[in-house]
Design a protein around this nucleic acid. Structure first.
Lengths: 244, 244
DNA sequence: ATATTGGATGTGTGATCACATATCTAATAT
DNA sequence: ATATTAGATATGTGATCACACATCCAATAT
């Protein structure tokens, strides 16, 4: 360590300042917005428009959008057209299959991890939070709790690289799931069912039953998927490339 | 169709021109370079430097690099520092695990697909090409053939979304695998072994034996991984964040 | 000898401008 | 009525500039 650095470190107690770049903050903001359902599937977006809303210039937004395009959360719908990834039934079905592979694998690993009592406590807390949110019809909180539950589990079983890929998949399907909030009854039923299945997940992890943990997580993914699919079948028409 | 458009379409026979954007071509170029081993793991890169080599300005490179950062092929090694993702033993091990899950799954599906005679022919051809490339010590061709073999298989079994994720993983580990060419003897042995295992893959697919196909692909991934790991253990030191 | 300083260089970052062009609306022509 | 045209508007794209700041290297001070 430098002597100058040492001198200042010992005498003052200054806390580090935020040195993150604007584009990074824009990216995180857009990412969170996608997961929280601030955007609709297929919704047209514009760089300048986002820049204005976020209170910055186009440049940082351009780079953030480029990253989100690479993650398939945003796509180019024409030569000079950007939009949130739309809901396409067959595409979404495929993502669900991949999610079942990866999240099932992560759940398996979480179930076989030693010393999982703190994990189980955390999972119970998240599931309880979802149930309570549903009582008071706070769908946003339920959505957030569900996400917290799943990622708590995957963090326990997955290494960072696996978690990273799963996050990308959630980012892609985020707007699709979140926009089902428009049908409050359906959305409530999805999570009512989810709370029950989550209990099975917790039990499986507590028993260290790898196969059961994978089965339960896959059931959770598939059953919510079926509801979502029904929602879109009822809402939009039969178009293959719908804008919503 | 428009009447004006129809008139021109019927009279002239003009072929469409390339309307892809510069940043898209830059991205594809960098992507190919990563897979072909034009970059070393951990190698420092600069936006302006790449722009000059590619004969364009910084702007398109910035966007392409942003996309590659999102895909974890390039990373920021400091406040104003970019580099190719370095080889980190534990990280690489994790990527291998994810690859085994996803590529094993794709192989399973390819094995259970109906009408796979054309697939088997194509796989045989790719494997033969690898063997012939090794005869004449053409490591580049062997590397390309290996990639062609794997993606032929995954394209047959995977839907586009699965293929997309697998591609991203190959992009991340591309420079790591390709740079093992520096040890010609080792590299040759990896692929000699690979050709044999590929035969097992082909046999499994021909027999429509899902489990065997998954096993064979996973063996291929794991065994080449072990060689790579040994290569890096011998070459670089014991650093946890090596620049090569 | 060792630590510090100071300037030069190169870097990513952000802002701004110019441009081609897709999209829309209203006027015009067929 | 329908198809075409013309103009206005908004968009992504690419180039360029200014800037803060790591990094390196030589000069200087301790």
């Amino acid at each position: 360590m430098n002597t100058v650095e040492a001198k200042y470190k010992s005498q003052r107690a200054l806390t580090p300042v935020d040195v993150t770049t604007v584009q990074e903050r824009v990216y995180q903001s857009l990412r969170l917005g996608l997961l929280k359902g601030e955007f609709l599937p297929g919704e047209q977006i514009s760089i300048r428009g986002l820049a204005e809303v976020l209170g910055t210039s186009a440049m940082p937004v351009r780079e953030a959008v480029a990253r989100l395009i690479a993650e398939r959360a945003i796509e180019q719908s024409g030569p000079r057209m950007l939009r949130i990834a739309p809901y396409v039934a067959s595409d979404h079905e495929n993502y669900i299959r991949v999610r079942m592979q990866l999240e099932g694998y992560a759940a398996e690993r979480a179930a076989s991890a030693p010393k999982n009592s703190v994990l189980i406590d955390a999972l119970r807390r998240h599931n309880q939070a979802i149930a309570e949110a549903l009582e008071v019809r706070d769908l946003d909180a339920a959505l957030g709790g569900n996400q917290a539950f799943h990622f708590e589990l995957y963090r326990a079983g997955g290494y960072p690289q696996l978690l990273d890929i799963i996050s990308t998949l959630w980012l892609r399907t985020g707007p699709i799931v979140a926009s089902a909030r428009r049908d409050e009854a359906l959305f409530g039923r999805i999570f009512d069912n989810g709370v029950r299945i989550h209990s099975d997940v917790i039990d499986a992890v507590a028993r260290r039953d790898r196969a059961a943990a994978r089965r339960a997580i896959n059931l959770d993914i598939r059953s919510s998927h079926l509801s979502i699919r029904r929602f879109y079948k009822l809402t939009s028409g039969q178009e293959d490339r719908p804008s919503v």
